[in-house]
Amino acid sequence: MQGPFHRGGQSRPMAEINVVPFIDVMLVLLVIFMITAPMLTQGVQVDLPQVTSEPIENPEDSDPILVSVDREGNYHISLGDDTTAVALDDLAERVTVILDRRPDTPVMVRGDRQIAYGQVVTLMSTLQRAGVANLGLISEPPQDE
């Protein structure tokens, strides 16, 4: 009884794997990821502050430039023990002069809790235009009640 599918007395198992369904699934997944990937990368990258954080390592020979905004909205630059009140227009020039002399000097921003968020953003934008590539924000650890 030989039919069209009989192999002449030997019946060996088929050793090939059919990968066509696997390829179909992979192509569908590829198309889905190609469509959704651009949607996932839109937006603004923001590093949100956390409640507790580790202190920033500071080399002993480099005092950071500390730029502060007080409750009244006045700007101050501190380098070591020297603190100077400065207008926002002059701030970029003074920071640029300091960074020209010592380019590895870290720049930190302190903002009063009551100050408007927009004023801190304006300060950060001014510092960025002055050539500050890395900017740190200073906060205080939470008070245990």
Score class of each variant (00 low, 15 high):
P21R: 04
F33V: 14
E16T: 15
E16G: 12
V20Q: 10
G43F: 02
L40D: 01
L29C: 11
M39V: 08
I35M: 03
L29D: 02
I17T: 12
V44F: 07
G43Q: 04
L29V: 13
T41G: 08
N18D: 15
L30R: 02
M26D: 03
P38T: 03
I23M: 07
N18M: 13
L27C: 07
I23E: 04
N18Q: 14
P21T: 06
M39H: 08
P21G: 09
V31T: 12
V25F: 06
Q45T: 13
V25L: 12
T41V: 15
Q42L: 09
M39A: 12
V25Y: 02
V20R: 06
Q42Y: 04
I23R: 03
V25A: 09
E16Q: 15
P21L: 11
T36N: 00
F33Y: 05
L30F: 10
L29S: 07
P21V: 06
L40Q: 11
Q42W: 10
M39N: 10
I17D: 06
V28N: 00
P21D: 10
P38C: 02
L40I: 09
Q42E: 15
I23Y: 00
Q42F: 07
P21N: 08
M26N: 01
P38A: 07
M39D: 04
Q45V: 14
P38I: 06
L29P: 02
V28Q: 01
F22E: 11
F33S: 13
L30A: 12
V31W: 02
G43I: 10
Q45C: 02
T41Q: 10
V19E: 03
L40C: 06
Q45A: 13
A37Q: 10
V20C: 05
E16S: 15
L29Q: 07
V20M: 15
M34F: 08
P21Q: 07
P21S: 11
I32P: 00
T41A: 14
P21W: 08
Q45F: 12
Q42S: 14
M34W: 07
M39R: 05
L27N: 06
V31D: 06
